[in-house]
Design a protein around this nucleic acid. Structure first.
Length: 801
RNA sequence: GCGGGUGUGGCGGAAUGGUAGACGCAGCGGACUUAAAAUCCGCUGACGGCAACGUCAUGGGGGUUCGAGUCCCUUCACCCGCACCA
């Protein structure tokens, strides 16, 4: 028996499907929008790890098609940004040339998957027709006051020569290259994502997302409840405002700390401390965030000034230290060393007072060895003594509000989004700077602002974009007053296009809008979104923000873009994440030529639970390949010698349908494949020399088709199918027909398996127990049975006294 | 430190509280073959036993239950994410 000829079969059907797409729109059916996170077309190409997510999306899409949905399953390219630019610089070509090359290779590789992508909807974020709308959204944000310019110290990656958003600089290192991030003072465009903080947090409730991703976004948004408190400054009419989540500990504040970047530092610093202070601030700004975080050892300088506690009137020293962050809260804190670990360390280091004000049990400890950060009863707190922390938080805040020296306050860790990059390969920010009118947005009818060709697009280390050297392009006229003006030379970050691309697929060639309202209404929001967990915060947060903004201006009528999110597990090789540059990437091209697309698709699903990481094992592909050959042989034989359906065959068929469908609905894709193997083996056994009956054969082919489309389509036609197998309907199991006439009952004594018996399915409890007793015989003589437990269809357990 | 996850044969992995190891890989034995490949059949957790069969076994320790891989408590190991946010 020779193996089936996958090469010619796969080639044949790929051509036919390309000419007659099987997911062509079919009016009147319910819609299903299944989206894979679009890839960044790098020079490395795809490996079998990338395939996994795409195959999952395609299996789902084809399953939905067979269930009678019209499915939108598109693909495109996220091609702006640093990797493409760096690749171009390295290979001495224009980024657009490199992108074209890589897209070509990615498209070819993705076509090898034979997914039902609607290639007529292919998009590319670097296409002017696409980025016109990326710029249009920016213009709307600008008009609505959500895009603004700001001069501020920013995360700067010295290797990429570009600023980074906070999300891109998590952990103090560049998200892309791992280089420790430094600070640089620059004028930047910002997007006011913080004004959506509450809704971004609240609406997480609407989503069917992995718990992990919801948690990560919640933590990133970082909402906290507390109070802002004003401290008068001794000998000055100025006040120092701090934020705290623990106003109940106010009487324990024995000093204050201001961040080195705080604007009040100069004013607070007394003459004799000035030299030391200037040096400290200089060092702090030079220090990378990594160094700032790695140094758990506290540093600081005393300003010489004192603040006055608004409750007890005590005067406490004001210090400057880099453990206080300028960008969070008010950039200044009150320090309660007895009840905060960081303040405790600082107080010990600089020998400052430590006053206990919270007691876990009402007693006062003499010598605190460490901070007690929990709640408790207030002590040493004037009129608030004896209160519980939770009550004291309210009472103290009310007291301060009454006196005009404090107020309730909510804070978020989320910062506004730094939206400009000093690089070439991105969407130009559609803004013109006019001396008279300031920043003016480019009129909508003039969009897109095309990215001009430039002789050198190498980044500079000065924080200026390469675009600034093209004077022809930079110098323009002001859209408002017509006077001379200069174009904005910064470009948008890599995330701009991916923040809204899922909308464009609905209507990718529209020249009047990001998509027509009808198309958006028809397809959006995305029903099922599939991609790696690495985008848990960045892309998914930005896309949610964009969607909420577009909702507010009436472009879309839904608040959340992705109803269901699925993160597929990685494929590892030798225990490490598969990576071409790591030398352990396996090319799908090789596997496809050895075993065929269908075998690789099957193996990608068989390898393990789709949400968990799985280890690649080349040899195991043999198993699914053998399985497909087995099916081929079985169906081929059944066509030659069609059999009549027996009762037993029908019963196995319905059980097979039931099992496969329920495993698929539980998204247990690996056991769907093992289910196919299990039931095929059963069918072969009961069919023996005869083949399968027509219905069993057809149902098996239909169910197999989302996983192994080519062989299924071929077998379907061999078996007499006139139209595509994907025009058929997913079979439905009849529970009545699944019933067997006999059942196997396990017999236990004291919970231990002793034997099994076969009984008629309609046997009563008494009959089963009687038969079980008879079967055990002598074994029962030596034990005292107190009762029997019978689980219908499963088990009889004789309970020992 | 906080959050999420994982721990079951030689390997990948199955098991709505109900016969642990489905399915597959690898391995062993056999059939076919001049031979090999392919294919087909059988065996394959550990220990004891000629065998029937018995005992042990789901990271470790406790508990609930007639019955626990599954539920509860506790503990260990590994992976991922976050982390001076007051």
């Amino acid at each position: 028996m020779s193996r089936y000829d996958f090469k010619s079969i796969e080639k044949k059907w790929r051509r036919i499907w390309e000419e007659n797409p099987i997911n062509a729109d079919d009016e009147g059916k319910p819609k299903f929008y299944c989206l894979d996170m679009f890839p960044y077309p790098s020079g490395k190409g795809l490996h079998v790890g990338h395939w996994r997510g795409y195959v999952i999306g395609d299996v789902l899409s084809r399953y939905k098609i067979l269930q009678g949905y019209q499915v939108l399953h598109p693909m495109g390219w996220d091609a702006f940004g640093l990797p493409a630019e760096n690749y171009a610089i390295k290979n001495n070509i224009h980024p657009s040339t490199g992108v074209l090359e890589n897209v070509g290779n990615f498209r070819r590789q993705l076509k090898e998957i034979s997914a039902v992508y609607d290639w007529s909807r292919e998009i590319n974020t670097t296409d002017p027709e696409f980025y016109a709308w990326t710029q249009w959204i920016f213009v709307q944000m600008f008009k609505n006051g959500l895009a603004y310019e700001k001069e501020m110290p920013l995360n700067w990656c010295p290797k990429c020569n570009a600023v980074l958003a906070n999300e891109e600089a998590a952990g103090g290192v560049c998200e892309r290259c791992g280089t420790p991030v430094t600070k640089k003072m620059l004028r930047q465009w910002m997007l006011k994502i913080t004004s959506y903080a509450e809704r971004l947090l609240e609406d997480l409730n609407l989503l069917d997302w992995p718990e992990k991703v919801v948690k990560m976004q919640t933590v990133w948004i970082g909402k906290s409840y507390g109070a802002e408190i004003d401290f008068n400054i001794e000998g000055s009419n100025k006040k120092l405002k701090v934020y705290t989540t623990r106003p109940d500990t106010l009487c324990g504040a024995t000093f204050m700390v201001v961040s080195p970047e705080h604007s009040i530092v100069d004013e607070l610093t007394k003459e004799d401390a000035r030299e030391k202070m200037d040096e400290y601030r200089r060092q702090a700004s030079a220090k990378s965030s990594v160094a700032r975080m790695a140094d758990k050892e506290k540093t600081g300088v005393f300003t010489g000034s004192y603040g006055i506690n608004p409750i007890n009137g005590k005067s406490i020293p004001i210090w400057v230290s880099d453990y206080v962050l300028a960008e969070y809260g008010t950039g200044a804190i009150m320090c309660v060393p007895a009840h905060d670990d960081r303040d405790f360390d600082f107080a010990v280091k600089f020998n400052l007072d430590i006053t206990q004000v919270i007691s876990p049990d009402g007693t006062i400890s003499e010598n605190l060895k460490e901070a007690y950060v929990g709640e408790g009863v207030l002590v040493n707190s004037e009129q608030f003594d004896g209160l519980e922390s939770s009550a004291a938080i309210d009472k103290v805040t009310a007291f301060l509000e009454e006196r005009g020296s404090g107020a309730k306050s909510i804070n978020y860790k989320l910062r506004d989004w730094v939206f400009s990059r000093q690089r070439y390969w991105g969407e130009p920010i559609p803004i013109v700077h006019c001396e008279k009118c300031g920043a003016v947005c480019v009129p909508e009818e003039e969009l897109p602002v095309l990215l001009p060709d430039v002789a050198s697009y190498q980044p500079t280390s000065t924080g200026e974009s390469p675009l600034s050297s093209i004077s022809d392009w930079v110098n323009t006229s002001c859209p408002a007053c017509g006077g001379p003006a200069k174009r904005e030379t910064n470009t948008m970050p890599q995330w701009a296009g991916s923040s809204w691309y899922f909308l464009r697929y609905a209507d990718p060639h529209n020249t009047n809008a990001i998509a027509s309202p009808e198309a958006l209404k028809k397809w959006l929001p995305v029903d099922y979104y599939i991609g790696g967990v690495e985008h848990a915060v960045l892309h998914l947060l930005y896309a949610r923000f964009y969607t909420k903004f577009l909702y507010d201006i009436g472009v879309v009528d839904f608040k959340e873009p992705f109803l269901k999110l699925f993160n597929q597990g990685m494929i590892t090789n030798e225990g490490r994440k598969m990576d071409k540059s790591g030398g352990n990437g396996v090319s799908p091209d090789d596997i496809v030529s050895m075993y065929g697309c269908d075998s690789l698709r099957m193996y990608e699903m068989f390898i393990g639970p789709p949400e968990l990481d799985s280890e690649w094992d080349q040899r195991s592909i043999e198993g699914v390949n053998r399985y497909l050959n087995k099916v081929w042989k079985l169906i081929e034989g059944s066509i030659e010698k069609p059999a009549k359906a027996t009762r037993q065959m029908e019963q196995v068929r319905h059980k097979m349908i039931y099992e496969i469908t329920s495993r698929l609905d539980h998204w247990s894709l690996n056991t769907v494949i093992s289910g196919f193997m299990e039931y095929t083996n059963k069918l072969i056994e009961i069919a023996s020399s005869n083949g399968l009956d027509k219905e069993t054969m057809e149902d098996l082919i239909i169910m197999l088709s989302p996983f192994a489309p080519h062989i299924s389509e071929e077998l379907w036609h061999m078996a007499g199918g006139q139209s595509s197998v994907f025009k058929q309907r997913w079979p439905i199991a009849d529970p009545e027909k699944m019933k067997e006439s006999f059942m196997t009952i396990a017999i236990q004594i004291g919970g231990k398996l002793r034997d099994t018996i076969e009984v008629a399915s309609d046997s009563s409890k008494e009959e089963v127990i009687l038969k079980a007793k008879g079967c055990l015989g002598k074994k029962l003589e030596n034990v005292q049975i107190s009762r029997e437990i019978y689980v219908p269809g499963r088990i009889v357990n004789f309970v020992i006294k």
